[in-house]
Simulated scan of single mutants.
Amino acid sequence: MKTRFDWVRLLPPLIAPLGAILIALVVSSIVLAVGGKEVFPTFELMLDYGSQPGSIAAMLDKATPYYLSAVAAAIGFRMGLFNIGVDGQYRIAALLAAALGGASFMDAVPGVVRIVLIVLVAMLVGAAWAGLAALLKVTRGVSEVISTIMLNTIAGGFVAFLLTTDKLGVQAAGSNAVTTPILPKDVWISDLPIVSGTKDGVFGFIVVAALVGVAYWFLLGRTRFGFDLRAAGANPSAAVASGVDAKRMVIAAMLLSGAVAGLVGLPQLFGEQHAFTESVGGLGFTGIAIALLGRNHPIGMAFGALLWGFLERSAQILDLEGIPKETVTIMQGTAVLAVVVAYELTSHVTKRLQQKRVGESVATPAPTGVSA
C-alpha cells in the first residue's frame, strides 16, 4: 500500500516558523527605520559577522545549553504541562553537581568517573526539584505553572544561601566573586575543533546535547511510554479510559523534564567556567521560547537554538556600530509571539482542509441513469 504525501499535514511545521521569522524581520525593520538606522545594511552586517568562523563556534556554544533547556520544556509541553521551573531546576542542579565535583574528598576519584557522577547528580537534583511540582499537582491539584514559578524563587534563595564561603563556595584571593571550587583539569571536557578557520573550539558537551535530542525523539515518538505520555497530554479523559495512569504520566513527565533541565548548566561548567558562579541563570526561560519556536520537535528546536545563538552573537557587532542591540531582543520576542499566532492560524486552516477532504471522501455520489 502506497503512502500518499500529505502536504496538508506539513503546513504548520513549515509555514508557521518561516512566517514568524518573516514577521520578526518586518517588525525589526520598522524599529530600525524609526530609529533612523539603515535596515538592509544592518541585516547584512549581522549576517556577515554571524557567519564568521569564530562567530559560528560561539553560536554553537550558546545553542548547546539553549537546546537542552528547550528539550526539558518540550517534554512538559508534550504532556500538556507548562514547566516554567527549568531555570530553577538547572541552577540548583548545577550548583550541587559542581560542588560535588570540586569537593576535596573527590580528589582520589578518576576524572572520567567524576564527570559521570557530576552528570548523574545534576540529573537527579533537577528531577527531584521538578518532582516537587509533580507531587503537588497529583496530590493537591496545584497548577504546575504556579508551583514551578515559586520553586524558581526558592531555588534562587537556596543558591544564594549555599554559595557562600562558609558553605559550598570559595573566594579566590583578590576577587569579589564567590564560586564553587574549580574543577581539576582532568574533569574538564575539551572543546571540539569542528569549525574550520578558527582556533576556537565548541563545547564538547554538544555531543551529549545531540544524544539527548535523539533520545527525546525516540522515547516520545517511538515507544509505548511516549505514546501514553502524548495521549495523556492531548486528551486526559480518553487516556484514562484506555487504561493510562494520568497521575503517573504527570510524575514521569516532570521527572524526565527536570532530569534534562539538570544538564543545562553543564556545558559551561565542563567547558568554560569550570565552577558554578552567581552569573549562571536565565537559560530556562530562553528554552521555553525555543521550544515554542521549534514546536517541540527535536530538529525544529535545534534550528531555534542556533537562531537564538546567531542573534545573540550578532548583537555584539550592532553594539559596536552604534545600533541598539535591543533590536535583537525585539526580533526574538516577536518571533516567539508570531510563531504561536502562526501555528494557531495554520492549524485552523489545516483542520478545515482535512475536514473538507474527509467530507469529500465519504460523500456518496448520486446514482446515474435514473430518470424521474
Rank of each mutant, 00 (worst) to 15 (best):
A305Q: 00
M301L: 09
E312T: 14
F303Q: 03
L318C: 13
E326Q: 15
A253R: 11
D319T: 13
L266P: 12
G281T: 02
D319Q: 15
L256H: 04
K325S: 15
L283V: 10
F285N: 10
P267K: 09
Q316P: 07
P324C: 06
F276A: 03
G300W: 03
G281W: 07
P298W: 12
A261G: 10
A275L: 01
S279W: 05
R295Y: 10
G287S: 03
S314E: 11
L263F: 11
G322P: 08
L318P: 14
E326L: 09
V260A: 01
A246R: 10
Q316W: 09
I317F: 06
S314R: 13
F270K: 12
F285P: 12
R295V: 00
F276P: 08
V264I: 09
K247T: 04
T286R: 14
V260H: 01
G281D: 10
E326K: 08
G282N: 12
A291Q: 06
P298H: 06
A259D: 09
G284D: 05
L256V: 04
R248H: 11
R248P: 08
G284T: 07
F276E: 00
L307P: 00
I288T: 06
M249R: 04
G258C: 02
G271Y: 01
G309K: 02
A253G: 12
D319H: 12
G265K: 06
A305S: 05
V250L: 11
F303R: 02
V250W: 08
V250T: 13
E321N: 14
G282P: 13
L269E: 03
V260F: 00
L293W: 13
E312F: 10
G294R: 08
M249W: 00
I288P: 12
G300S: 05
W308I: 02
L320K: 15
G287Y: 06
V280G: 11
A246W: 08
G294M: 04
A246Y: 12
V328S: 00
P324A: 14
G271P: 10
L306P: 09
A302N: 01
I317A: 08
Q268Y: 11
L269G: 03
G294Y: 07
P298M: 10
S257P: 02
M301N: 07
K325Y: 15
A315F: 13
F310A: 03
E272F: 08
V280E: 07
M249A: 05
M301W: 06
H297F: 06
M301R: 05
F276I: 02
T329C: 02
G281A: 04
T286H: 11
T327Q: 07
T286V: 14
G282E: 12
G304H: 01
L311Y: 07
G258V: 00
G304Y: 00
D245P: 04
F276Q: 04
L320S: 14
I299S: 03
R313T: 14
R295G: 10
A315N: 15
V260N: 01
E321F: 11
D319I: 10
G265R: 06
A315D: 12
L307S: 00
G281R: 06
E321V: 08
G262T: 02
